[in-house]
Design a protein around this nucleic acid. Sequence first.
DNA 1: CGTGTTTTTGAATCATATCAACGCAGGTGG
DNA 2: CCACCTGCGTTGATATGATTCAAAAACACG
Lengths: 262, 262
Amino acid sequence: METMFPIIEMTSEPPGAARVPRYPAPEENATGCALARRLEGFNPLSEAERAALAQLGGYVRSVARHVALVDQDRVADHALIVFSGFAARHKRRTSGRRQILAYLLPGDLCDRGALHGYPLDHAIETLTPCRVARVPRVAYLDLLERHPGIAIALQRARLAEEATAREWIANIGFRSGVERAAHLLCELLERLGAIGQASDGQFELPLTQVDLAEALGLSSVHMNRVLQALRRDGIIVSQGRHLRILAPRRLRQLAEFEAGYL
Amino acid sequence: METMFPIIEMTSEPPGAARVPRYPAPEENATGCALARRLEGFNPLSEAERAALAQLGGYVRSVARHVALVDQDRVADHALIVFSGFAARHKRRTSGRRQILAYLLPGDLCDRGALHGYPLDHAIETLTPCRVARVPRVAYLDLLERHPGIAIALQRARLAEEATAREWIANIGFRSGVERAAHLLCELLERLGAIGQASDGQFELPLTQVDLAEALGLSSVHMNRVLQALRRDGIIVSQGRHLRILAPRRLRQLAEFEAGYL
DNA sequence: CGTGTTTTTGAATCATATCAACGCAGGTGG
DNA sequence: CCACCTGCGTTGATATGATTCAAAAACACG
């Protein structure tokens, strides 16, 4: 039936680029790779392990924006790794309203399908164009078995993901709109910083206000006003997709953000 | 300094009961034990495994209401298992306001301390008087190693807990007060049913309206009105701690509750 | 029985949602 | 090159769900 994974195949080089020897795209070689950077943050990796991660580049495909990567109630037999772009876990009501449960940033992954034969309780969709690896179950299990250092890093990544989920419950549960936004920005700064995609309080945020609103449990209109408030108070500035945090301290204390669980 | 685990020692029998031979309390023998029932729901256990669970009864102690079982930012070196009573994971703001992140019902446990040496990002506290086992790290690890069936069940329990956390994000994020309450009641019915503490849409709910409000991100006043609305519409009745769901179908569709992830 | 906790009530206020509309930028096709 | 469209951000007006404060009523407990 539906292709379920409509792929925009950009893996082969554009004709003009064919003269230079083919290296993996910067996101997919082991050093510049968000996945490797992120895992290193949890557990130092050996040379062999970094090489093994680089091998995953072969599974990477380009995926357009707003494409479902995993449908709810489906048993996925692949692990999903985001190499670039933003995706999200989400649930929908019959009304069509949706709640984003987690952002998947470069270096994040979802292995629930591959590791346990359970149908997922939520869906995953790209929020921007992405480069995503779909690693078949056997290859993924093989990777974990061969490289215990990676397995450990992934366990810790899972702990971090659980902690983030709890943080979101608290965020939506007991903070005001502005505070929620502040907290989310702190989180994004920290997570993007960990993969080298934020520096000096600045980063590219390729999300729409609707994407943010759906993560924070706010209406898009209110989200807009919340962001205006943060700008008016000189806490952030944004030009296009580029976001700059002018007053990180104030932002953190507004959100009562505690760094550290990564 | 603080005892950190103020124990009301009720383990020894009351004087009058001393004539009958001492059996473990119904919550702590293997068959009536909520832990065993719950784990069986995830993976069938062997006789030896049920016996091993029964051994844990030795670690069980009575704990009064509103006692901290684990403090935030502490590295716990024990696994925590609730045998009876309700406890909760929660976070607090400096304002004192708190958000409950998850209820721990009989048969639930927290092994983050024992398994990984990480400080917890939240606190755990009893909401009612409880019977709680604190299992030392080594004993816990030993149990998992000796009984792979238990380890598997616990892995699945962890998946279920993650799914519940995501459900809570959605619940607080995109449902109204009444809908949130409805959803929580559905969840409690399902979870208590799994350990044999709910039947026919009825169960004992030893929580105050404040406890419920803090889980749903509502004020206690609003929580009260929400419950009144559910009663007025003939969906529930409650007498004291006893709750009866009169219209389970309506409750579920109000909450758009999907059973199954347990 | 009296004391502390929990539930319930009312009234005022606030935060956020909803509805509807507009502007602007980028992209497309004639 | 212009007309059109679409997606996103922005506004204002209005509606409402939820909070807050304060206090009374109902319970539970020793």
